[in-house]
Amino acid sequence: MTPLQRPAARPLPQIFAIPIVLGVVSAIGLAAALVGDDMWDAIGWIGLGIPLAVTAWYARPK
């Protein structure tokens, strides 16, 4: 049996830290690909690719 230890509740900034970073990165990606080509498109791919990579990492079969 694992000991029934209640983990401490996290403050809001901690809960939302990663979602906010991913949101900002996504928004930069969405906008960058729109304002330019070539390098700007690449920024777009990276910006929207990061949330995908994060998803793949956490949802990977364990």
Partner: peptide
């Protein structure tokens, strides 16, 4: 962030996945 409780019930595992996948796609 990103916790997926694989060893718990199916409901809890899907709740965690729902939260994870929802959180990463909020802006998009």
């Amino acid at each position: 962030f990103g916790t997926v409780r694989n060893k718990r019930s199916r409901l809890i595992r899907w709740l965690d996945l729902h939260n994870l996948l929802g959180a990463v796609t909020i802006v998009w």
